[in-house]
Design a protein around this nucleic acid. Structure first.
Lengths: 203, 203
DNA sequence: CAAATATAATGAACACCGTTCATTATGCAA
DNA sequence: TTGCATAATGAACGGTGTTCATTATATTTG
């Protein structure tokens, strides 16, 4: 039965088309401003068709989230390559912040947007797990070699992630306008802050 | 003309009624899930009436934000009273995190929600300025007495705020489910993390 | 090949949303 | 009491996510 094979292939292709289109539109206009209707328009299908391939808009979000986490992990692998554990940690920090600054809508959808993944934590572990592991492994090296003031790996990972996320997300929500800094200076300030932070926790 | 006085009083009272009702509903159900219609319902007026007192839903948000910042500042003043600058800093950190954990919807609306304050930065400075100043003053003491590894006050304020915000907001968005920790343990982990962080940047 | 069937796509409809505005009701001044 | 300014209304507009009876298409069967 070559027919059922083709059918299945067509089905996954259609799913892929919707996913890719959604990704593109989320990236450009953000999740909230991208409507199911507009996605349907873009692929020249009717709105109802989307629902034959995805349960709801959230499922589309999860799918795109997965891809986004994949991209972040790729960035880590490409940019955090130092053999010196501390330098590698600094590279991870820089990469994370740059990723957030360069892909604001993607970052939003990965870490800030509200979606009921509150319940389904498995999806989320799978999605973000690899990225978090990269950080944990990196810190593991540093702590084992006694390079940091922080001793608990999980707690240290949480702290460093929280700091980087705090910097990026406060900026994305324009909360740094409270400081007297020009717009253009912000990226460097964030990077510098992260580096100062890492320096402070380094022995 | 006592009439115009009363008119004016009634007008501000109505505005206040709407604001208070909105505050209550935002706190309970969140900003997104609270509709203008439902606010109108609650005060037994028609939806259109709201627009006689507020330009749009965002203006209502700003108003509530202002009150929320006021509450946070009150918490700071009440809970961060130590004369020891470092202990006071720790108290601020704990208060901030507890505030976020105990008022998730309020925290959301203050720091996470997207609203076009992107343009109007003055509003925001006025709103959050006092809270930020409290932190800055606190840090100023610490740095002047050479108690911290961080030397730039503004950068240090940014870092500490970012760390606390990172911890709270990652938790609010359930991103900490990635770690193998039971739900109940999270508050203590966040507090402990913040304390460990402050300890690490303390000389 | 034709008819029957299974599958895919449709798009109108539903219940919401924020917002506007012509219409109506109200309370005060003349 | 009449006229008028002000306040309140609620239907209407254009949007949203989502559902589902209907229609079109493609495959299998007789």
């Amino acid at each position: 039965m070559g027919v059922t094979d083709r059918k299945e292939r067509e089905k996954t292709e259609m799913r892929e088309l919707i996913r890719a289109t959604a990704m593109k539109m989320f990236l450009e206009d953000g999740y909230a401003k991208t409507s199911i209707r507009s996605i349907a328009d873009a692929i020249e299908y009717s709105p109802g068709t989307i629902y034959l391939y995805f349960k709801d808009k959230d499922e589309l979000l999860y799918e795109v989230q997965g891809e986004a986490y994949g991209r972040l992990l790729e960035v880590f692998k490409k940019e955090a390559t130092s053999t010196d554990p501390l330098e590698k940690l600094r590279q991870v920090g820089r990469s994370y912040i740059n990723f957030g600054l360069q892909n604001p809508e993607l970052y939003d959808l990965m870490f800030i947007i509200r979606a009921p993944m509150n319940v389904d934590e498995e999806i989320h572990k799978a999605n973000g797990g690899n990225c978090f592991s990269f950080l944990v492994d990196c810190l593991d090296d540093c702590i084992k070699k006694n390079l940091l003031r922080l001793k608990d790996i999980e707690q240290a990972s949480l702290l460093i992630w929280a700091t980087a996320h705090g910097l990026v997300s406060l900026n994305l929500r324009c909360r740094l306008k409270i400081m007297d800094q020009p717009e253009e200076a912000i990226p460097q300030i964030l990077i510098k802050s992260m580096e100062d932070y890492l320096a402070a926790v380094t022995i």
